[in-house]
Every structure is written in structure tokens, then in C-alpha cells.
């Protein structure tokens, strides 16, 4: 999935919003916006985007591309057809803030459910 598939009107990843408004920008800018999304310090945006864009019925490949674009580390458990994903957040203090996603797939590798949540690590 290319970065241009993001729906900027939904106001999700800021770099992607810019991309959709100026669709004539060169490929280099596309790459930079995707990378910008990956490194976006506003993790809430990407997590919000995941919740909105990953929905029941979309294929595994698209899910993984969304997760990659938003800087999640992820892996599929082939025993249960579940994708586990983690995006590490702020670790400056005693408590860290991450984003977790868990995506369940059916036998055709299509999404059956998704859970995205903000979690705090630390005491």
C-alpha cells in the first residue's frame, strides 16, 4: 500500500495529509512523508489512523503496510493467525507510553477483528 492511500481528510498522519492535498508532488516527497509518519512523534495520529483504516475484511498485506508506515514492529503468529504489533512511545520518565495493536485474521488472511490501545509501561 502506498502512502497516498491514506485519507488525509480524516486528519490522521500529518505528513500524509499534506500528500493528499498536493498530489502532484514528486515521489521523493511521498517517501519523505511516509518516513515522516514513521517517525511522527504524535503517535496518537498513527494509532488513530490504524483504528480507522484497518477494518474487517482487508487483507494481511495491507495491515502490515499500515503498521510499517506508522512505525510499528509487528509479527504474525501463524498458529492463531494473529498479528501482534507494538510502537514504542515516550520513554523519558518513569512511565512509558506505547501503542499496541492486535489484529486477528481469518483463514483467507483477511481481518476479522482489530484492537488498538494505548498502554503505559513502568511502575
Amino acid at each position: 500500500m502506498a502512502g497516498g492511500n491514506f485519507d488525509g481528510a480524516r486528519g490522521t498522519c500529518r505528513g500524509v495529509v499534506m500528500l493528499t492535498r498536493f498530489s502532484a508532488l514528486p515521489a521523493a516527497l511521498l517517501l519523505s512523508t511516509v518516513l515522516g509518519c514513521q517517525k511522527n512523534e504524535n503517535s496518537d495520529d498513527c494509532a488513530q489512523m490504524l483504528s480507522e483504516r484497518i477494518h474487517v475484511g482487508i487483507p494481511q498485506g495491507d495491515v502490515e503496510q499500515f503498521l510499517n508506515n506508522c512505525g510499528f514492529t509487528h509479527s504474525i503468529d501463524p498458529r492463531t493467525n494473529t498479528i501482534y504489533a507494538l510502537k514504542r512511545g515516550d520513554h523519558g520518565g518513569l512511565v512509558g507510553q506505547d501503542w499496541n495493536a492486535q489484529v486477528d485474521l481469518d483463514a483467507k488472511q483477511k481481518v476479522t477483528s482489530i484492537k488498538v490501545e494505548k498502554v503505559f509501561t513502568g511502575p
Binding site: S75, I76, D77, V119, T121
Partner: peptide, 15 residues
């Protein structure tokens, strides 16, 4: 301890 406890906690989210 914060670092490695964090790694342990995140192990679940990482599968």
C-alpha cells in the same frame, strides 16, 4: 530496571 522491566512488559505486545 526500568529498561528491562519495560522489555519484559512489551514481550506480550510483541507476540
Amino acid at each position: 530496571m526500568r529498561e528491562e522491566l519495560g522489555n519484559c512488559e512489551r514481550a506480550e505486545s510483541q507476540g
